[in-house]
Amino acid sequence: MILINGQPENRIPVSDRGLQYGDGLFETLAFRNGELELLEQHIMRLQRGCKRINLSFQHVDSLRAELAMLCAQTAEDSVIKIILTRGSGGRGYKAPLENEAIRIISSHSMPEYPEANQSGVTVRLCEQRLGLNPTLAGLKHLNRLEQVLARSEWDDRTISEGLMLNINENLIEGTMSNLFIVKNQQLLTPALTQAGIAGIMRSKVMEIADSMSIACHEKALTVNDLLDADEVFLTNSIIKLWPVKTLLHNDTNTHWQHGALTQQIQNALKDLAH
């Protein structure tokens, strides 16, 4: 099911700036066990993103009602996607002086990842690099061509994710996930001040770590930091947490165990309605 500004519809004008320029934001939520997980955190990130890109978003209550309508007609666990665009504004990059976000929400089948949460996943390093843009860093904006190109680098179903570096060779994230390293019983995650998406699940893991008195640091990380890690895991709102068991790099394999700290965080993520 798809709703556009609350109405059943599956088309937008060709002139929509989301299509023309990637001028907008999106959120991906898990609908599990009859609940939208971490809804308030997703809405807050949308509002922060709208402020950053100067996109008017006044109809938050309407969005909540539309999400409730969509979920009421969704019987199974699903992926719910929210897209906000700046709407139509004529040809040219200059945004209209007055605009109100166009709301597009849709439901999709929940993907299955057999045993990934327990046995761990295999990842690779991508050749595609992320550019530096502190203005857009952290935002879940519609310009995802770097990730599209990175994900096109492999077609091996045994590889679940690709890790991306920026042009300065710092680790940033996966093509669809955030990265955590465990070293000496501490969590390390890449700083996202120049590139990358500040994921909702990433924030939740950091919150959980703080509540458990587990040190968690955001910092510049390199491939050598990754190779030297005790444990590695990935997060996003749909997968929650994937332990990484194998990294394919330069024709060699690096292996990690599904370690104790990873399992501790994983157990804390089981109930995520709020």
Rank of each mutant, 00 (worst) to 15 (best):
G6A: 11
Q7K: 14
Q7I: 11
P8I: 09
E9V: 02
E9N: 15
P13T: 01
P13I: 00
Y21K: 06
G24L: 02
E27F: 09
A30Y: 05
R32V: 12
N33H: 13
E37M: 08
E37I: 01
R45T: 05
Q47L: 13
G49T: 03
G49W: 02
G49K: 04
S56A: 14
H59M: 10
A65W: 04
E66M: 02
A72Q: 14
Q73V: 10
D77S: 14
K81C: 09
I82S: 04
L84D: 00
G87K: 03
R91Q: 11
Y93W: 11
Y93G: 06
Y93R: 07
A101I: 02
A101K: 07
R103C: 05
S119G: 02
S119Y: 13
T122I: 07
T122L: 03
V123A: 10
R124F: 11
L125H: 11
C126G: 03
R129N: 01
P134D: 08
N143V: 02
E146I: 08
L149N: 07
R151M: 00
E153Y: 01
W154R: 06
R157M: 14
G162C: 09
L163K: 01
L163Q: 01
M164E: 02
L165R: 15
E173C: 12
I181L: 15
V182R: 04
N184A: 15
Q185H: 15
Q186N: 13
L188I: 08
P190L: 01
T193A: 14
T193W: 12
M201C: 11
S203L: 10
K204S: 07
V205H: 05
M206Q: 14
I208R: 07
I208L: 12
I214P: 06
A215T: 13
N224E: 15
D225R: 12
D230K: 11
D230C: 13
D230H: 07
V232C: 10
F233P: 03
L234W: 02
S237H: 05
L241H: 03
W242M: 09
P243I: 00
D251C: 02
T252H: 13
T254A: 14
Q257Y: 08
G259P: 11
T262A: 01
Q263I: 10
L269S: 09
L272T: 08
A273V: 09
